[in-house]
Design a protein around this nucleic acid. Structure first.
Lengths: 350, 350
DNA sequence: CTTTAGCACTCCGTCCTCCAGAGTGCTAAA
DNA sequence: TTTAGCACTCTGGAGGACGGAGTGCTAAAG
C-alpha cells in the first residue's frame, strides 16, 4: 500500500494531536482538523490503512487512533516541522547560561537542571571522555610538617587538588624533587601502571620520600578513577508525574529507578552524532521501552564531550524538545569554545 | 486518665505491628500477641482509652487502630527498644565505608547512597559549615603564557583548584608576587569584601597584574559561593514507591519534588544534637507532614559537620533506621577523625 | 474507483447495588 | 474489672446496567 500525501498529513495531525492531549484521536476530529473537506468516513478508511501499515494503533476497538513507535519514527524523521525558538525562549536559555560558573561538575549538573525546567521533562547530563584520561602534570605545595597539597592536571586540562596528610614529616625542600619524580615517571599512564611503577620504586626510596609519593599517586589514581566512571546527574524526576502516562505507579516506578539509581545506564550518544531521538522500543534499556529519550551532545575542550538528554513518554513533544535541546547544546559548545576549555568568563567582577 | 503499664505495652505492640504490616491493628490480634491471657474485649476497652488520649487513631469506625503522631512520639521516646546492629550489618556498613575516597563531595554523596541502600528508604546527605567559610591561602602555578592554575584552601582545609585563562600574558615570575598579594589582602574575608577590595586596587595596578588577579578572585568567590549554598545529595527516591502509603501518586509526587528539586529545604539538624527524629506534623515543611525524617550528624574536620537523613512514611521502622543511622554517623565521625580532616587513608596501594 | 451517509456493534468508564468480612462499641453478666 | 455476646458500621470487591464515543461495514452516490 502506498503512503499517499493525504495519509502522511493524517498521520502528522494524529501525532500532534495525541502529543497535545494524550487522548486517542477520532476520525471525527480529524475530518474537522483537516479542513472539513472530507468526511469522517473517508478518514476512517485512511485510518484503517495506516493501522494496517503499522503507523497507528488502537488501544481497543472503538477507541480513536494513537501513533505507534513506527508512526512516531516517521513523524520525527519526515513529518515533524523543525521548530525554531522564539526570542523569548532563546533569551530564557541565554540568561540561564550567563551565570558564571567554572567547575566542570557544577556546569554539567546545572545544565541538566536548566534543560529539565525548560522542557518540563526529567533530564540527565554527563561528561564523557573521548579517550582515556591520564595525569598530565603534578604540583605539590607545602602546608605544614605533615601535610601538603597535591595538584594534578589531567588530559583535557581539568585540575583537581587535595590536601594530603602524611604520618612521616615532609620538609618543603623535598617537595620539588618529589614533584619532578612524579612528572617524569607518573604522567601519561593509567592508574594501574602507576601502582606498578610505584611498587618497583619501593626499594629504591627511603620511607620519607616513598610515603608522600604513594599518597600523591593514590590520590592521582583516585582522580582517574572518578573521571573514568563518568558521573551522570539527573533532575526534574518529579516532572514525570505530570504526564498522564505515568499516573500508573508501576510504569513510573521503573523509570524513577533508572533516573535515580541506575543513571549510568541512560543512553549515551555515539560520537559524531549531535542529536539522537530514541523512541520506545528503540531503546535497548528495558525500563525505557515505554518511554522516549532525546539526547544531544556538545563539546568541552579537546578531550571531552558533554551529554544532555531528556526522558519523557513516547508521546513527548519531539519538535519542541529537539529544538530546545539542540539550541542548548549549541550554546554550550560555543560557551566552552570561547576559551577552548572553560565556561563563560567575564572580565568584570559583578 | 492514666497511662498504665498495660496501655504502654499495647501501644508498643500496635506500633510495631503497624510498622511491620501497614495494616490497622485489631483487638483480636493484640489479644493473641499479648499472650492470650486477656480477651479482645478488654483490649478494646484499652484501645478506646488510648484513642481518647490521642495515642491511637482509627482510619474509620470499625477498622483497627493505627498510631497517631503523638503515639509514634511516645513510642520513639519511651517504648522503642534501641536496636544494636548484628555483626553482619556492621560488617556491611564497614565494608561500604572502606572504599578509599578523598574528595569531600564524593564522600558525602556516597554516604547518602549507602544509607539509602542500608535502610531501604530515600536518603539525603549534605555538609554544612559551622561558621562562614573564607579563603585561607592561595597558590598560583604557571602553565603557559595565558594560563595559570589557581589553588585555594578554605577554612576547614578544603582545597579547590581551577585552570584560569587570561587574555593578557602572565609571566611565571609575576605569579609569586600575585600570590603574595592575594595571601596578604584577600584571605579571611567574604566574597563581597574581596570584590570591594579588588575595586579599590584597580587604579594602583597595571592591567597585566590586575587581570589575572581579578580572575583568581573571581574564582575564589565562586568557591565561597558554592560552599555557602551547601549542596544536598539525595538518593533512593525510587524506594518510596515500595511503601504502601505512597501508592497514592499525589502524596508521592509532593515528596518526590522535595527530594529532587527542593533538596535544600530538607530538615537540618541543630548543632550539638547528634540525631533527631521528626514525625509527621512535627515537620515544618508542608510536604513532609505525612512523612517522617530521621537525621543524624557527624563531624568533618573543625569547621564542618556532615548531615545524613532518611525520609520515609510516618510508619517507618524508627528503631532500625535510628540504629543504622547512628552507627553510620559514628563510623563517619571516626573515619574523618583519623587524620582530623580526611577520609580513610590506606598506606598501601591496592 | 473514491467518497459518503447510515447503522449496527464494540468497548470503556461510571454508577449502583449487593454482600461478605473484619472489626468495633455497648450492654449485661461473671 | 473482665468477659461473652450481639448489633452495628464501614470497606472493598463483584456483578450488572447504561450512556457515550468511536469504529467497521455496507450500499449508494459521485
Amino acid at each position: 500500500m502506498k503512503l499517499t500525501e493525504r495519509k502522511r498529513k493524517i498521520l502528522k495531525v494524529v501525532t500532534e494531536r495525541y502529543i497535545d492531549t494524550a487522548d486517542p484521536v477520532s476520525s471525527k476530529f480529524l475530518a474537522q482538523a483537516m479542513g472539513g473537506k472530507i468526511s469522517s468516513a473517508t478518514i476512517r478508511n485512511e485510518l484503517a490503512d495506516l493501522t494496517d501499515m503499522g503507523y497507528l494503533e488502537q488501544p481497543h476497538t472503538s477507541a480513536g487512533r494513537v501513533p505507534s513507535p513506527k508512526g512516531y519514527r516517521l513523524y520525527v524523521n519526515e513529518l515533524m516541522e523543525h521548530k525554531t525558538l522564539s526570542q523569548q525562549e532563546t533569551d530564557q536559555i541565554n540568561s540561564a547560561l550567563s551565570g558564571k560558573m567554572r567547575e566542570l561538575d557544577s556546569v554539567i549538573a546545572q545544565a541538566g537542571q536548566m534543560v529539565s525546567s525548560i522542557v518540563s521533562y526529567p533530564a540527565y547530563s554527563a561528561a564523557v571522555e573521548k579517550s582515556s584520561v591520564t595525569i598530565q602534570r603534578y604540583d605539590l605545595l607545602p602546608v605544614d610538617a605533615n601535610s601538603f597539597i597535591a595538584v594534578v592536571m589531567t588530559t583535557g586540562s581539568r585540575v583537581k587538588s587535595q590536601l594530603l596528610h602524611c604520618s612521616i614529616a615532609v620538609t618543603p625542600d623535598e617537595l620539588p624533587a618529589l614533584a619532578n619524580l612524579l612528572n617524569s615517571h607518573f604522567t601519561g599512564i593509567s592508574g594501574q601502571e602507576m601502582g606498578q611503577k610505584l611498587m618497583s620504586l619501593a626499594g629504591q626510596l627511603g620511607a620519607e620520600l616513598f610515603m608522600p609519593l604513594s599518597l600523591a599517586i593514590e590520590y592521582a589514581s583516585e582522580v582517574l578513577d572518578r573521571s573514568a566512571q563518568n558521573q551522570v546527574f539527573t533532575t526534574g524526576q518529579a516532572q514525570l508525574f505530570q504526564q498522564p502516562e505515568f499516573q500508573d505507579l508501576s510504569k513510573a516506578n521503573e523509570l524513577m529507578g533508572l533516573l535515580t539509581d541506575q543513571k549510568d545506564t541512560l543512553p549515551v550518544l555515539d560520537e559524531n552524532t549531535s542529536m539522537q531521538i530514541l523512541i520506545g522500543p528503540e531503546n535497548v534499556n528495558e525500563a525505557l521501552r515505554d518511554a522516549s529519550v532525546v539526547v544531544a551532545s556538545y563539546d568541552i575542550g579537546d578531550n571531552m564531550r558533554g551529554l544532555i538528554g531528556v526522558v519523557g513518554p513516547t508521546r513527548m513533544d519531539y519538535a519542541a524538545v529537539a529544538a530546545r535541546l539542540s539550541y542548548f547544546a549549541e550554546s554550550l559548545t560555543k560557551m566552552f569554545g570561547k576559551n577552548n576549555q572553560l565556561p563563560p568568563k567575564e572580565d568584570t567582577i559583578p
